[in-house]
Design a protein around this nucleic acid. Structure first.
Lengths: 225, 225
DNA sequence: CAAAAACTCCGTAGAAATACGGATTTTTTA
DNA sequence: TAAAAAATCCGTATTTCTACGGAGTTTTTG
């Protein structure tokens, strides 16, 4: 039997994919500073393409991938990696906390999204969370996500001052796929009246046709369902 | 000049609003455990109504409000509080990390949203963040928000297998408020062809009319913009 | 109370969408 | 390569939507 001198926790194999050496170095230092809690063996790649060619690809436990890189983007890299190894744990790293970026990475299959200003303690938490099969997102990311929603609400409030209650009601009914005739019957008014409301709405909301109305209604969450 | 024996940081006045004594007590204990970092003077209210009647209302620095309470709901309480004191810092507390709940509280004006399983360290971070004028959300909350998005994406993928590429293309153009005629011109096909696609889409997606198409397209994020 | 805003109704017409049923050509795929 | 799926085109007919202009009634509001 092989002798085991000390009990050593198996190090985590981390592959850092980023085109900037500085970022890679910074990450290495940060991971090193966590060695009392977790040991890391750090591998590096300057691009998604390079990462995919790594021979020790299968030994990697965790990948940290930058969002924007020349050549394959972060999202493309994530996608490509997961195609060859679906269970790979991937942490997306970015400067941006805007929804579209996050969305891209998460859609591609990243299990977490952190910002570059992350503190070591949070990094440790992020890595632990992801390695245990869960997802991790920086709080700032959450804030951005909700701000998005908040903006919608504001717009909605502004708009609902702009369109009259009746118009609002008609809009909701249009959104339920009802025709002017049906709406008129339900509201006990002439279908031509409904047409008038419809026309006013189209003008007020600056829409070309009913499709435009629905789009606005959707954007502003005027549609329940 | 008055004598100052020891340098004492001014305690933060916290009002806890929750109908369950147990939760209030638990919070008090947790806040007490943070005294080495921050001093709290804890006030309590069993309901939104009671909170609004507090005479030391104006001395409160931070409110922690439970989501579901008999009588005024958490969101209503938040809204009412902010009407009389718009700059009040409010932290929403809940068992639920579902979007609609979070949405309600944030819309009402809560500056943060934490779950009841929060750890003291995170609580401290949340309070600090909010008192400094920022927003704070538990990570689990962020995950839920993104899962929501992910589900959409899955649906989208499923659906895009169902509708043909051409149909998808036509759908996008319909969503741009284009008529069949215009679409036909742009795709160099007869407008009747577009009508056929439109008809097939309506049937496949089980919509009554164009409005239904757009609704589905929107739900599934098929529409860029 | 007077003015403004919102809601209502209507005529005429043309454009667009929907319904139904088919047929041909092209492309994909087993 | 044969079958299936997708994309194309078309005829007929009806319904719905959009456009333009006008006008009466009710409600809201300063």
């Amino acid at each position: 039997m092989a002798s085991v001198k000390t009990k050593i926790a198996k190090p985590i194999n981390v592959l850092i994919i980023d085109d900037h050496k500085m970022v890679r170095d910074g990450l290495k230092v940060m991971l090193g500073s966590l060695k009392q809690f977790m040991q890391f063996s750090v591998f590096e790649a300057e691009s998604g393409e390079e990462a995919l060619k790594k021979k020790d690809f299968n030994a990697i436990d965790l990948m940290i991938i930058d969002y924007n890189m020349p050549g394959m983007s972060g999202a493309e890299t994530v996608f490509a990696v997961l195609r060859s190894k679906p269970e790979m744990k991937i942490l997306a790293l970015s400067n941006y906390s805007e929804l579209p970026y996050i969305q891209n990475m998460v859609d591609a299959g990243a299990k977490g999204y952190i910002l570059k200003n992350i503190e070591p303690a949070e990094m440790l938490r992020a890595i632990k969370t992801i390695l245990s099969g869960n997802k991790y997102f920086s709080n700032e990311v959450a804030i951005k996500l909700l701000d998005e929603q908040e903006e919608k609400t504001m717009q909605k409030i502004r708009l609902q001052k702009f369109i009259t209650p009746r118009e609002n009601q008609v809009l909701q009914m249009i959104a339920r796929e009802m025709t002017s005739k049906q709406i008129g019957e339900q509201l006990f008014v002439n279908s031509r009246t409904v047409d008038s409301h419809r026309r006013n709405l189209t003008k007020k909301l600056n829409a070309k046709n009913t499709v435009g109305l629905i789009k606005i209604a959707y954007k502003l969450n005027l549609i329940e369902e």
